[in-house]
């Protein structure tokens, strides 16, 4: 596949086309980000001279799992209409733009690096607010009407358990610890009596843009699906997302009770700690499988990277956390 160059000329042409107004571009730069996704920051200056602060998010090549950019674009638009704090989307890239699949959205100022959010003085006030904000925002996401959403896969616990088993079998490496986790999850899988709801799929510290007053935006909707909404709350509590603050289960900044209380206050759904724990176990397993997948992304030659190679050996950390949870 030919590598697409992102430069000011291409971005300016795309903005001119979609805004129907002559636009010039300044300060185009690539933001740090995942190996499978590219994010670029730039300012678009229209005919009136006023700059718009924007972000371009695109797939460098073929996507590995997750939704495509068009789905993410429509999800963000629906979330914005529903009052969920997300960047406002501006336009979807078209064929004529020559930059592959992607979209442009507003740029929200703030911090996403978890260790800074958890440790810098600047975010001291924010840290007190994050847990209740997470409870409220999660409830808002889960309340979004399915009629407003793009087509998304229904993935309840059992569906995903079987997917992870298939993924593991595909790599051909035996993982007794994962198998113990999968068996435990299978035996306790919630029977979805309720209609599936929107699940963000990657709702965690690291995917929030945080300012002095807490969460300004929820990012990275590419793992969104329909299913049991408590999956999001359990994922938020996975130990890896506490970044060293292991005594604060909610993202390294808060306690489960406050999360569940604020969630109940907005959603009307009371969640007991056992149900939260189920999805925390599930999330720990999911992150373990993703680490293995990233290791194999390197081994298969899809993306050669020492960082991905190292993630392959981080699998043992998630296996350990999983056993700690199962034996607790």
């Amino acid at each position: 596949m030919p590598r697409i160059r992102i430069d000011e000329e291409h971005v300016a042409a795309a903005c001119t086309r979609h805004f129907s107004s002559d636009t010039t571009i300044a300060n185009l730069r690539r933001l740090s980000g995942g190996a499978s996704r590219e994010t670029w920051s730039f300012d678009a200056i229209g005919a009136d001279g006023a700059p718009q602060e924007l972000v371009l998010r695109r797939d460098p090549g073929s996507s590995i799992g997750g939704t495509d950019r068009s789905t993410e674009f429509h999800l963000l638009r629906a979330a914005h209409s529903a009052g969920v704090p997300v960047p406002e989307v501006r336009f979807l890239l078209s064929e004529a733009d020559g930059m592959g699949a992607g979209f442009v959205m507003e740029r929200i100022a703030g911090e996403t690096i978890p260790r800074k959010i958890l440790r810098d003085d600047q975010y001291e006030r924010a840290r007190d607010l994050l847990t209740s904000q997470c409870g409220k925002i999660a409830a808002q996401i889960h309340a979004m009407s399915l009629d407003d959403l793009p087509a998304l896969p229904v993935q309840d616990a059992l569906t995903q358990i079987n997917q992870y088993r298939a993924v593991l079998d595909g790599f051909g490496e035996p993982h007794p610890a994962f198998e113990l986790g999968l068996r435990w999850l299978e035996e306790r899988a919630p029977t979805n009596a309720k209609e599936p709801q929107l699940v963000h799929g990657d709702f965690r510290n690291g995917n929030f843009i945080v300012g002095e007053n807490g969460i300004r935006s929820v990012l990275d909707w590419e793992l969104a699906h329909l299913g049991d909404p408590i999956e999001d709350l359990g994922w938020l509590c996975v130990k890896s997302w506490r970044f060293g603050n292991s005594n604060l289960p909610v993202g390294g900044f808060g306690m489960a009770k406050e999360l569940l209380d604020t969630y109940a206050a907005t959603s009307g759904t009371e969640v007991d700690e056992e149900r939260l724990r189920y999805w925390e176990v599930f999330g720990t397993l999911k992150w373990g499988v993703i680490c293995e997948l990233q290791g194999f992304t390197h081994l298969n030659g899809l993306v050669r990277s020492v960082e991905l190679a190292a993630l392959g050996r981080r699998v043992a950390e998630m296996e350990w956390d999983l056993l700690e949870l199962l034996d607790a």
Binding site: P176, A177, L180, R313, R314, A316, E317, E319, W320, L323, L326, D327
Partner: peptide
């Protein structure tokens, strides 16, 4: 028995990995 065995294996992996 299984948990004990698997835990020992994972501990050994972590002694190398982290």
């Amino acid at each position: 028995d299984v948990h004990k065995c698997v835990r020992a294996t994972v501990r050994a992996k972590l002694e190398v990995a982290n």
